[in-house]
Structure formats: structure tokens, C-alpha cells
Amino acid sequence: MTLNRRKALALMGGTVAASALAAPAIAANRKIKVGALRFTSHSGSFIAVERGYFAEAGLDVELTFFQAAQPMAVAIASGDIDYAVTAISGGLISLAQKGAIKVIGGALAEEEGIDGQQILVSDAAFQAGIDHPSKLNGKSYGVTQTGSSFHYVGSQIAKAEGIELSFKPLQKVGAVIGALKSGQIDAWNIVPHIAKPLAGSGAVHIIGAVQDYIPNYQVTTVFTSAKNAADERATTENFLAGFSRGVDDYNSAMIDKSGGEAGVNEMVDLIHKYVYTDRPREKAAPSIINGTMRLNKNAALNITSVKDQLDWFKAEGLVDGSVTMETLVDPSYVETIG
């Protein structure tokens, strides 16, 4: 099922909202478009492009950049892009219900012992005594869209602390950052390569970690159109193979430090072509290094975490209650864990 962008957006209207996995495709240089955010956590795709892993898998990949998760889901459904890595959102789930998209793997995950997403507050809120998530009752919490992953995370924090939050949709990550720095919103959560520099500037403060509230959270997933998942198996396997080689390189250099400092520096140089491109390398490097979180080997998918997220979206009335895991996920491509 291929949808144009208008139809894909209409379907969302009801929402508030692997190394060596396959041999290269026979038709070499198959052109595909891959969606991404300019986040360190999307480095698997960047590396696979830069080091020729997609090309070796028979794919000619063009990266297309977005500023939020839900527009990426629309682009997959409309055929504007072929594969993407992003968080689960209400829009993505609703498009899956319509037979437009499928989650086929996992990418970024929270892992104990590795700094993950941080919970931030504005300087004004911090000066007013909000130095722990338990003190956020009644405060405003920034999200890109209602039904976004930020909404899910904030709700899990509120539930655990027994508090109420006022969610403020601001559409783009940049807008959320601006609102937090200026004190227009009180709190937000974000990956460490953004959280730590913001906190270091003194404009915002870190008051907690997401993994304390959602251990083993599958932060982002790999997804594609339902048509690609069903009818383009070779291409989909080749995409996952190239992507997974990029993930392996990233984890090896940045988490396991197998190449020492030189390996880290080489990887930072590569990532800087896509992340913090408006900063000189010496200023971008600390943020890129601070953002290091493990990416799932071979795009393995934490199915328990995905189910928890789906159940929350359904319970909140953000997606249709009839949506099942079988509707959302095609588990035939990668190992499922959790």
C-alpha cells in the first residue's frame, strides 16, 4: 500500500497526534532514500553511507533529514523515503494500523551503565527549587507533538512519581530547546549529546535520567513501508545488513573503545559531517562523545519495550485500541529480545 503525503497525513488525523543479514541485491546500486535526524544516535546510517556498507549491499542511499519523528512516519507511508530510524509515535502506530508501515528492527536503547536520555529543567525552574522529577507536579513539559516519544517518556515519569504534567507540543526539537532555555516550558527529556551541552551552558539543568524510569527502553526503531517489508525482502535485508555494519563500527569505536583515542577521533570526524555541522570540530566533538549510547547489534528489537509503548498509546486514547503488535511489527527480519 503506497500513500501520497496528503493521504498519509489524513490517516494520522485520527491520532492526536544486521551484519551479513543477506547477500547484496542482484540489481546493484538500487536507489533508496533513508530518513534520519541529525542526532548522534543515527550514526549507523551515517557510517554505512560514508564507509560504503550500503553500496556493498547493492544500495545507492540518499539520506533525507527530518526534525521530528512523526513527519518521518508520514514520509515512509507516502513513499517519499524508503527506510528510517526514529522513535515510536502515535502517528507511526496509526499508519501501521492502516497497513502503511512496519517496524522491522531496533536502533537506540537505554542500557544500564551508559548515560542515556536526561531529564532537563529550565534555569528558572531549577532556581525555584525543582531539582528532581518528583517536584515537577503541575509543571509544563515540552514535546514535539502530542503522541510523540517525548510525550510517552514524560507520562512514564509522571506516573512513577505520582504527579501531573502539562504537555506543550512545539513541533520541532529546536523549538523545544528554545522554549526550555527561555523558561517558556519547565522540563523536557533528550539524548545526552544535546542534554549535556545544554546543561554545561548553565541555561538548563539535568535533574534525572530516563533509564531510572524506563529501564531497557527501546528509544528508536528501524521501520519501512508495509509494502517494502512484504514485497521487497532482499532490499530490506540488504538495508539492514549495511546499517548493522555501521552500528557495529559505532559501538566498537565509541562504546568499546577498541580503536583507542584514535578510533574515537576518527568516528567523531565522520559523525561531524552530519551532526553539529554548524559548529567547528573542536566544539562539536565533546557533544558527539557525550551522546554515545549503544545501538542494538544487528538491529535486534526489544519487543517487550515496544509492547509497553503500544499499550500506553492505546490506554491514552492516542491510537485505536484495536491495534496489535502484529499490526505494528514485522518480527521476521531481526532477533527480538526482552
Rank of each mutant, 00 (worst) to 15 (best):
M1L: 05
T2V: 11
N4V: 10
K7C: 06
A8C: 08
L9Y: 09
M12N: 10
T15S: 15
L21I: 10
L21G: 02
A22E: 09
A25H: 12
V34E: 13
S43R: 04
S43V: 01
A48S: 06
V49M: 04
E50V: 05
G58V: 03
V61R: 02
E62V: 13
L63A: 10
Q70H: 10
P71K: 11
P71N: 05
I76V: 13
S78M: 12
G79M: 12
D80C: 04
Y83D: 04
A84W: 01
A84M: 13
A87M: 10
S89K: 01
G90A: 13
L92M: 07
L92D: 02
S94T: 07
L95I: 07
A96D: 02
A96C: 04
A100M: 06
I101Y: 05
V103T: 08
V103A: 05
I104R: 01
G106E: 12
A109E: 04
E112Y: 05
D115A: 06
L120A: 02
S122E: 01
S122A: 14
A125K: 03
A125F: 05
F126N: 01
G129A: 07
I130C: 10
D131G: 05
L136M: 15
N137D: 13
T144G: 10
G147K: 09
I157L: 11
G162M: 05
L165S: 13
L165K: 15
I177C: 07
G178Q: 11
L180H: 02
K181L: 08
S182V: 09
D186C: 13
D186F: 13
W188A: 09
V191A: 08
P197D: 01
P197M: 03
A199W: 01
A199V: 09
S201W: 09
G208I: 05
I214F: 03
N216Q: 10
Y217Q: 03
Y217T: 00
F223N: 00
T224Q: 09
T224K: 02
T224W: 00
K227A: 15
N228Q: 12
N228G: 06
A230C: 07
A230S: 10
R233G: 11
T235I: 14
T236G: 01
E237P: 00
N238T: 04
N238R: 15
N238D: 07
F239L: 00
A241M: 09
F243E: 02
D248V: 07
D248A: 08
D249G: 03
M254Q: 02
S258E: 02
G260E: 11
E261A: 11
V268I: 13
L270Q: 06
R281P: 08
R281H: 09
E282W: 04
E282G: 03
A285S: 03
P286C: 03
S287W: 04
I288R: 11
N290R: 14
T292I: 07
T292P: 03
K297S: 02
N298T: 08
A299E: 00
A300H: 03
L301C: 08
D308V: 06
D311V: 07
W312F: 12
W312E: 07
K314Y: 06
L318T: 10
L318I: 10
V319C: 12
G321L: 00
G321W: 12
T327Q: 12
V329D: 02
D330Y: 03
D330T: 01
D330G: 01
P331Q: 00
V334P: 01
V334K: 04
T336H: 11
I337A: 11
